[in-house]
């Protein structure tokens, strides 16, 4: 029965989107993190989605292929009194852009909702199919 595969497809998409939401949450949480003793500040992360075939023709799920780190230089602020300041008095913050992350968050949650709606529709159709002929 091909409709049962919808749950696999939409479920994989929902799990990928929730992983994206997870990454957004950790990016936002670390938006103001400064460089540690190793001099490396937190780097913003991004998930990369990839299509995953689900056995049948036309059933294409989603999986997270990699989580990439943004390699751009973080924000540097001159603050000699800061405990995390380097020899020149600069503090390196993480390179998270909160505006981008908020947009990412809204997009992820909308996509998640879409997939949940698809699963609800498929479920009600399947329940009606089970009552066929009664």
């Amino acid at each position: 029965m091909s409709m049962f595969n919808i749950f696999n497809v939409s479920g994989s998409a929902a799990s990928a989107q929730s992983q994206r939401l997870n990454v957004v949450a950790s990016n936002l949480a670390n938006a103001d993190t400064v460089a540690g003793p190793d001099g490396q500040a937190y780097k913003a992360r991004q998930v990369v989605f990839q299509t995953q075939l689900m056995g049948e023709v036309g059933a294409a799920g989603v999986r997270v292929s990699t989580v990439q780190e943004d390699q751009t230089q973080g924000r540097r602020v001159h603050d000699p009194k800061h405990p995390g300041a380097d020899a020149e008095g600069y503090v390196t913050y993480s390179n998270v852009n909160p505006v981008e992350e908020m947009v990412n968050m809204i997009s992820a949650s909308r996509s998640y909702q879409n997939n949940v709606e698809v699963m609800n529709t498929a479920k009600s159709l399947l329940l009606k199919t089970l009552q066929m002929g009664q």
Binding site: S2, A13, R20, G61, V118
Partner: peptide, 17 residues
Amino acid sequence: SERQRLLASNIANADTP
């Protein structure tokens, strides 16, 4: 039902490059 599965796949892959 096959078409439903196709459309579900499209919606699932809305953010896949």
